[in-house]
Design a protein around this nucleic acid. Structure first.
Length: 348
DNA sequence: AAATCGGGGCC
DNA sequence: GGCCCAGATTT
């Protein structure tokens, strides 16, 4: 039996029972696939259920407000996924009569759907012969065939796509795709792969050469930026001053607090003496409480975040600032670190 | 072709 | 602390 056939047999005996595998509804499969982009199954699962319950079809999704989508997406990260889904849902409602496309070429035109997701939806929902290439597939193929081309290098995408396409089962492409990914996720794991019980270890390059620790090869070229965020907590009765974030930074279109960003971690007196600080908050030396700096790690940024409680009102308001009732915070999509701050203060 | 976009789990 | 996760978009 060949490689692909062995994996299929393994899959049928070992697969998890995941909710999005029991449907051919392209909307439901799209929902699951976008949620699972760069996200573990266990982390995405509760979001999948919540979204499906709140938005059981593409039309209900299309009729949502962006704030609602972002709020339901809160905590999952990579928030452009949610915003792109809303654009796509509205396009499908408008141009496709609310019928979600299942053809690879049509799917590829939609916001937030790239080659992987188009292959996944088209093969799972319509049996189109399109091989998925995700992180699992990169790893399985690199190890089994002994490919040391860095998976994040220029030509790798084409190399691995060609191999994956060559392997796909044309009778049941969806099952084959599921099998490849499940095998990578459950057995051919990044660390401590289950080579001892692997059904294809006899033909596996990495097993034969004891190479699972360095395959797949990946170039590390990550530049991490350090940022220092000084947030100001300003209340007025039962209201709190919030800020709506812009489009071109982390947490796009989400809500945080009035913010002064600095290039270093400034002592309190230096922060308060900045022209920008004085412009918005005047002299605030004597009525503040500064919470300890929290380190917040993102993929490309190390954030040093602290909260400064003011007992006075700002002398100038920014356009994007607005007062809202504390009770209304449950409707606003908050970045994780902001949610933690406000949760601790207001018992959200 | 490279940079950017979150948050969490594992080692 | 580094790596990875059912990647896509922007520059």
């Amino acid at each position: 039996m060949d490689f692909a056939a062995e994996l299929l047999k393994w899959y049928q005996q070992n697969k998890r029972d995941l909710p999005w595998r029991n449907t051919t509804d392209a909307y439901i499969i799209w929902l699951s696939e976008v949620i699972l982009q760069q996200t573990r199954v266990e982390q995405g699962m509760p979001y999948f259920y919540r979204f499906l319950e709140r938005y059981p079809d593409v039309n209900s999704f299309a009729n949502a407000a962006e704030d609602d989508i972002l709020k339901l997406w809160q905590g999952l990260g990579y928030y452009s996924r949610g915003r792109n889904m809303l654009k796509t849902a509205r396009l499908v409602q408008q141009d496709c009569d609310g019928i979600f496309p299942t053809a690879y070429d049509e799917l590829l035109k939609l916001k937030g759907i790239g080659e992987y997701t188009a292959a996944a939806i088209s093969s799972f929902s319509a049996g189109e012969v399109r091989a998925v290439v995700d992180g699992n597939v990169y790893r399985v193929l690199a190890r089994y065939f002994g490919i040391d081309e860095p998976i994040n290098s220029t030509g790798a995408k084409k190399t691995f796509q060609t191999i994956a396409t060559d392997l796909i089962n044309k009778k049941m492409p969806g099952l084959h795709n599921q099998a490849m990914m499940e095998f990578g996720a459950m057995l051919c794991k990044p660390k401590n792969p289950g080579c001892g019980i692997c059904p294809v270890r006899i033909g596996c390059y990495a097993f034969k050469h004891n190479a699972t620790t360095y395959l797949p090869v990946k170039l590390k070229k990550l530049k991490v930026r350090e940022r220092f965020l000084n947030y100001f907590l300003i209340t007025d009765g039962d209201k709190i001053l919030m800020n709506k974030r812009g489009e071109n930074d982390i947490w796009a279109n989400m809500y945080d607090l009035p913010l002064i960003e600095t290039q270093t971690l400034l002592p309190a007196n230096e922060l308060f003496n900045l022209p920008e600080t004085k412009e918005y908050f005047g002299s605030i030396i004597n009525n503040t409480e500064i919470l300890p700096v929290q380190k917040h790690i993102l993929t490309h940024q190390r954030l040093y975040v602290r909260l400064i409680k003011l007992n006075t009102q700002p002398v100038k308001l920014e356009q994007k600032w607005f007062y809202t009732e504390v009770q209304n915070l449950e409707k606003l999509a908050l970045p994780k670190i902001i949610f933690i701050f406000l949760k601790n203060i207001f018992n959200l």
